[in-house]
Amino acid sequence: EPEARKIVEKLINNGLSPEDVKRWAEKNNNPEVKKAAEEYQKR
């Protein structure tokens, strides 16, 4: 999901860690963003 990846990169560029992004995604019920954050961590 390229859109989710863009969101993850934007949040990380704004100073969030991938863990923060995953928590944000869970709080906002956004499994695509959570998955993208996990993939981002593996890179």
Rank of each mutant, 00 (worst) to 15 (best):
E1V: 12
N30A: 14
R5C: 12
Q41P: 06
W24Q: 04
Y40K: 03
W24H: 05
K27P: 01
N28E: 10
L11H: 03
A37L: 14
Y40D: 04
K6I: 11
R5D: 09
E3Q: 11
E3C: 12
E38M: 06
I7V: 08
K42R: 11
K22I: 15
A36M: 11
L11D: 00
W24D: 04
E38Y: 03
E38K: 02
K35I: 09
K27R: 09
A36R: 02
L11I: 01
K6D: 10
E3N: 12
K35R: 12
P2R: 15
E26W: 00
E19I: 06
E19D: 12
A25S: 02
E3I: 11
L11M: 14
K34R: 12
Q41I: 15
A36K: 03
R23N: 12
I12V: 08
K27D: 14
R5A: 11
V33L: 09
N30R: 15
W24N: 04
N28V: 11
G15H: 05
I12Q: 01
R23I: 11
K6N: 10
S17Q: 05
E38C: 09
N14Y: 08
P18W: 13
K34A: 13
A37Q: 02
Y40N: 04
Q41H: 07
K42M: 09
S17K: 05
R23L: 11
P2Q: 15
A37S: 04
R43K: 13
R23H: 11
E19G: 06
E26A: 01
P31D: 11
P18D: 03
R43I: 14
E32I: 08
A4R: 02
K10Y: 14
R43A: 14
R43G: 12
E9M: 06
K10F: 14
R5Q: 11
P2A: 15
P18N: 02
R23A: 10
P31G: 06
K34D: 03
I7H: 03
E38I: 09
Q41L: 13
R23P: 00
L16W: 15
E32M: 12
R5L: 11
N28T: 13
L11S: 00
K34P: 01
N29H: 08
L16R: 03
A37I: 13
V33P: 00
K6C: 13
K6Q: 12
N30C: 14
A37K: 01
L16A: 08
E9V: 09
P18S: 08
I12L: 12
V21N: 03
K34V: 12
V8Y: 06
E19C: 08
W24L: 05
G15A: 03
I7R: 03
E32G: 10
I7G: 01
V21Q: 01
A4V: 06
L16D: 02
I7M: 09
E1D: 13
P31V: 10
L11W: 07
K27H: 11
K35W: 06
K22T: 08
E39I: 05
V21H: 01
Q41G: 08
L16Y: 13
V33T: 01
I7N: 01
A36G: 02
N29K: 09
I12C: 06
A4D: 01
N13M: 13
N29R: 06
A25M: 01
V21C: 06
K6T: 11
P31M: 12
E26C: 05
K27W: 07
P2N: 15
N13L: 13
V33R: 00
I7W: 06
P18H: 06
A4E: 03
A36N: 02
L11K: 01
K10A: 14
P2D: 15
A36T: 04
N13K: 14
E38W: 01
V8R: 00
R23F: 07
Y40T: 04
A25I: 02
K34L: 14
E38H: 04
P31Y: 10
I12M: 10
A25G: 06
A25P: 04
K35V: 08
E39F: 01
S17E: 04
K34T: 08
R43M: 14
S17A: 06
K27C: 13
I7K: 03
R23W: 07
L11A: 05
N30Q: 14
K35P: 00
L11N: 00
E39W: 03
L16E: 03
N29M: 08
K22R: 09
K27E: 15
P31F: 10
P31K: 07
N13W: 07
K27Q: 14
P31T: 09
A36Y: 09
A36D: 02
W24A: 05
K34W: 13
K6R: 14
A4P: 09
E32L: 12
V33M: 06
N13Q: 14
E38Q: 06
K42T: 10
E9N: 08
P2H: 15
P2M: 15
A4C: 07
R23K: 11
V33G: 02
P2G: 14
W24C: 06
I7Y: 04
E3K: 08
A25H: 00
P18Q: 04
K22D: 05
P18A: 12
K27S: 12
E32R: 07
E19F: 00
K35S: 08
R23T: 06
K35D: 07
R5G: 07
E32H: 10
N14R: 13
E38N: 05
N29C: 11
I12W: 02
R5M: 15
V33S: 01
E9K: 08
K10E: 14
N13R: 14
E39T: 01
G15I: 05
W24K: 03
V33W: 04
N14G: 12
V8E: 00
R43D: 13
W24I: 06
P2I: 15
A37R: 00
E39A: 07
N14Q: 15
E1F: 13
V33A: 05
R43Y: 13
K10H: 14
V21W: 00
A4W: 11
P2K: 15
A4Q: 02
K6Y: 07
E9W: 03
K42P: 09
R23G: 05
E9H: 09
E1N: 13
V8N: 00
V8H: 01
E1P: 13
E9L: 06
P31C: 11
R43T: 13
P2F: 15
I7F: 08
K10I: 14
